[in-house]
C-alpha cells in the first residue's frame, strides 16, 4: 500500500533540495509553485482528516490557487519583467547549498527526536519536512543576492510554518482561518516586493540587494 502522505512529504523535501540547487530564476519559481500545491495538499492525506465539509473544500481550493498559482504567477511576471539576468546568482554555491540542505534534514531529524512530541500516526516525517523547509527558506534568503530570491525564501519559510502548524495542532477548520490570514500576508508581501523590486531595478539597473547597501546611513 502506498502511503500517500509520505509520498507528498518526500516530494516537498525534494522540491526544497531542487530549489536550493536550481540556477535559473524561472525554474525556481516553477518549483515553488509545485511546492505550494504539495504543501496545501498535505493536510488532506493525514489520517485524522478524512471528512471534509464544503467550507473545507473551498478553503483548500483557494489555498492551492494562491499558493500554487497566484503567488508563483506573480513572481513569474516579476522575473520576466524585471530580471535582466536570469541566473540566481548565489553567494554560497549550488553544490554547497545542496549540502547545506542535506545537513538541514539531518538537523531537523535531530530536533524532532529531541522535541519528543507525541505525534499521531507516523507524523514524524511531517515535522522533519516542516523544519527542513523552514530552515531552507531562511537559508535561501541569506544565501542569494537578488531581491526576488528573498521573496521566494520567505515563501518557503511560510510553507514551513504552515507545515509545522499542521504537524503540531489538532485538525480543525478554525485553525485554517489563521493560516489563511498568514497566507494573505504573504500575498501582500509579494505584491509589495514586486513594487520594491521595480523601484530597485529603476534606481540601480539591477535587482542585486548588495546595491541597497549604498542606501545605508
Amino acid at each position: 500500500m502506498i502511503n500517500y502522505s509520505d509520498a507528498v512529504l518526500v516530494i516537498i523535501l525534494l522540491s526544497v533540495l531542487i530549489a536550493l540547487e536550481s540556477n535559473r530564476m524561472v525554474a525556481l519559481v516553477k518549483i515553488m509553485g509545485l511546492q505550494g500545491i504539495m504543501v496545501s495538499l498535505v493536510p488532506l492525506f493525514l489520517p485524522q482528516h478524512q471528512e471534509l465539509g464544503s467550507g473545507g473544500i473551498i478553503f483548500f481550493q483557494i489555498m492551492i490557487l494562491i499558493k500554487g498559482l497566484l503567488i508563483p504567477g506573480l513572481l513569474y511576471f516579476a522575473v520576466q519583467k524585471v530580471a535582466i539576468k536570469r541566473e540566481v546568482e548565489p553567494i554560497i554555491g549550488y553544490h554547497a547549498s545542496l549540502f547545506v540542505g542535506l545537513m538541514m534534514i539531518m538537523v531537523s531529524l535531530f530536533i524532532t527526536e529531541k522535541l519528543q512530541v507525541t505525534l499521531p500516526g507516523g507524523h514524524s516525517l511531517l515535522l522533519i519536512t516542516a523544519i527542513t523547509t523552514l530552515g531552507a527558506g531562511l537559508f535561501l534568503m541569506m544565501s542569494r543576492t537578488k531581491a526576488i530570491t528573498q521573496v521566494i525564501g520567505y515563501l518557503m519559510l511560510e510553507n514551513g510554518i504552515y507545515l509545522v502548524g499542521t504537524a503540531l495542532s489538532k485538525q480543525s477548520h478554525t485553525r485554517y482561518v489563521v493560516e489563511f490570514g498568514v497566507l494573505l500576508d504573504v500575498l501582500v508581501g509579494v505584491m509589495i516586493m514586486g513594487i520594491i523590486l521595480h523601484n530597485i531595478n529603476r534606481a540601480f539597473d539591477d535587482v542585486d540587494t548588495a546595491l541597497l547597501g549604498r542606501l545605508k546611513d
Binding site: 531562511l138 541569506m142 540587494t209 541597497l212 542606501l215
Partner: peptide, 11 residues
C-alpha cells in the same frame, strides 16, 4: 553592524 547587506540582516 549596519553594513547594508540584507542577507546578513536575515542572518
Amino acid at each position: 553592524i549596519q553594513h547594508g547587506h540584507i542577507q546578513l540582516y536575515i542572518g
